[in-house]
């Protein structure tokens, strides 16, 4: 008790260092980021298992088994690998944001402590999105050694577009966590399994992960449909950055300029919508 009396509650505001609000807000933002780091570090093995179990089997079945029994062409693995990198990053980013947010806004309200911190409320959403993107980028990166191990000779990544590759991995994480924010703020806890099926499954299969976009030209309506899924741009952008040239020609993908523009537009749009619903949920 004596400790406390000497620190004194009466002198309140004394602890409030300086009056620069931007600095105060940044301090709060980074403290929240540190909090997420602490929690993720503690559950790192769980996080990796959760993020990598599915791609592990995808790589094995689609990259090794199907070509091995003659049901897929030999370069299928090289075309699918970028899709797996995109999907893994996107899902890991989404999972890091959506599920905790649904529970928090639904009943746990653990987020209240952060909402009461001296920073603009939408920064709390921003922190979640940036941290989620980082989780996504980590999960994406782990696919490379994993693919190398599983695919063996089938593992092929071109080495001359590394800057694009890094940029695409980051953008994929961001679009995943921005979608995660939107989903996390619109899904109610009692709808969680239904909404996952309704939103997740179509997202997964219309995102050009297991097939290149160009190959869909014979199923035109589906080709157009896939353009509404941000995952398509993530997959195609990564395919552009990773797929080795075929007989001296670049593998055909959606143009990288369009990919980058539309992916960025998706990120901004999803984040704006997600922040709007987030604010509606936390301030009435």
């Amino acid at each position: 008790m004596s400790d406390l009396t000497s620190t004194g509650l009466a002198g309140a505001a004394r602890l409030h260092r300086g009056d620069n609000r931007t600095i105060t807000a940044l301090q709060a933002f980074f403290a929240m980021f540190r909090r997420d780091l602490t929690v993720t570090r503690r559950e790192f093995v769980q996080f990796l298992l959760q993020a990598l179990m599915q791609p592990l089997f995808f790589l094995f079945i689609f990259g090794k088994v199907l070509p091995g029994i003659g049901l897929a062409a030999g370069n299928f693995a090289a075309l699918m690998l970028p899709g797996i990198v995109a999907l893994t990053g996107m899902i890991a980013a989404m999972q890091g944001v959506t599920l905790p947010l649904v529970l928090d806004l639904g009943f746990a309200r653990e987020i209240d402590d952060r909402l009461l911190s001296p920073l603009p409320v939408w920064w709390v959403a921003l922190e979640k999105v940036i941290f989620g993107a980082m989780r996504g980028a980590i999960a994406s990166s782990v696919i490379f050694p994993l693919g190398w191990l599983i695919l063996g000779n089938g593992f092929a990544v071109r080495g001359d577009r590394i800057p694009y590759l890094i940029g695409m991995v980051l953008l994929t994480g961001l679009v995943g966590s921005a979608i995660g924010l939107l989903m996390g703020t619109i899904i109610k806890p009692d709808q969680i399994s239904l909404m996952f099926t309704l939103l997740f499954t179509p997202l997964l299969f219309t995102g050009c992960t297991y097939y290149p976009w160009g190959a869909l030209r014979n199923i035109r309506w589906f080709q157009i449909l896939t353009l509404f899924n941000p995952l398509t741009y993530a997959s195609e952008g990564l395919r552009y950055s990773m797929a080795p040239p075929v007989q001296g020609h670049d593998f055909p993908t959606i143009s990288i300029a369009w990919t980058l523009i539309l992916l960025s537009v998706s990120i901004v749009a999803m984040f704006a919508l997600g922040t709007r619903t987030f604010l509606r949920r936390v301030i009435t």
Binding site: A28, A31, A108, E110, D113, P118
Partner: peptide
Amino acid sequence: DRSLKVREILTFHAAYHGV
């Protein structure tokens, strides 16, 4: 915050407030 340990709940709260 159920993801944190008891003492961390306090220290992170203070960190959010710039202590």
